[in-house]
């Protein structure tokens, strides 16, 4: 639609009382969505897909990290795509799946949260934000059924409970709270396996950052669609930390330092840190 199909006075939808959802307001203006166009199966591999995101809690809150690769079938579509975004001042969202739809979904979600905060004068609760994302995701069900699925992971610092929390989703808009850690995307199987062995409840921020890099390294090691740290082009994973002070996207120079340490350690131990055996035997 053209964004402003009116002249002069604002239409009545703008002045209608109640309604603090931007997405609902947009639907009211645009009318029912057209049915999603049919997409032949062979065309699906021509659509860029975003790959691996990991998220877990640590002592001060939660951390989310994503690799930088987008793929179209066996082609690398982009080397430096960003898939982890601040959703508002105390939450972050990461996306895997059809990149174009996913980035648009994140944009709508960001406006949705800010819109609510401005209309109501207070931000949504963390559960409220997680539920809104589920509702927006459900709006994409038509595309998802054709293979253009988007799978987000959402997390933030819950100011009411004083801790970091995270939520996973399925393509139908199902919302599930994760207790400690989660990963989505093509490399998520390897990421989850790695995360299970490396995760420690209550670890500090420095350990959380190096764990995030280790896990993404392991995912890239075994999944061709996940990009490892690109030392020659200096393209590193995006890491966002959320604590009681809000969201911080870690500066590239700081990430580079962590990446260097991890890569140096892998020079002598290519498979990364070794988990201790139950009997304490040597590896």
């Amino acid at each position: 639609m053209s964004p402003e199909p009116w002249h002069g006075r604002l239409p009545s939808a703008f002045m209608a009382p109640g309604g603090s959802s931007f997405a609902d307001f947009l639907a009211l203006l645009e009318g029912p969505r057209p049915a999603s166009p049919h997409m032949p199966a062979e065309a699906l591999s021509d659509v860029p897909h975003a790959t691996t995101i990991v998220a877990f809690t640590f002592a001060g809150g939660m951390v989310m990290a994503g690799d930088r690769r987008a793929t179209m079938g066996n082609i690398i579509a982009q080397r430096d795509i960003e898939k982890v975004f601040p959703a508002d001042e105390h939450s972050v969202v990461g996306i895997a799946g059809a990149a174009g739809i996913a980035v648009e979904l994140v944009r709508l979600f960001q406006v949705e949260l800010e819109h609510y905060e401005k209309i109501e004068g207070v931000p949504l609760s963390l559960d409220g934000k997680a539920n809104r994302l589920a509702a927006l995701l459900r709006g994409n069900l038509g595309f998802a059924m054709q293979g253009l699925a988007v799978v987000p992971v959402f997390g933030g610092y819950d100011l009411a409970e004083g801790k970091g929390r995270l939520f996973s989703y399925d393509v139908t808009g199902g919302r599930y709270e994760e207790r400690e850690h989660h990963a989505v995307g093509s490399g998520s199987m390897f990421a989850r396996g790695s995360l299970k062995k490396l995760y420690r409840a209550g670890m500090n921020e420095a350990d959380a950052l190096s764990t995030a890099i280790e896990v993404l390294y392991d995912a890239a090691d075994d999944d061709s669609a996940t990009g490892g740290p690109d030392l020659t082009r200096r393209i590193f994973p995006v890491i966002a930390v959320v604590d009681s002070d809000g969201v911080r996207v870690i500066a590239e120079s700081a990430v580079e330092g962590v990446v260097q340490t991890v890569v140096n350690a892998r020079m002598s131990q290519p498979d990364g840190p070794v988990a201790p055996l139950p009997g304490g035997g040597a590896s």
């Binding site: 406006v111 819109h115 401005k118």
Partner: peptide
């Protein structure tokens, strides 16, 4: 409220 809606709509569209 109308102003917030208009501003957010413009920012989202453009």
């Amino acid at each position: 409220v109308a102003g917030v809606r208009l501003a957010d709509l413009r920012g989202y569209s453009y």
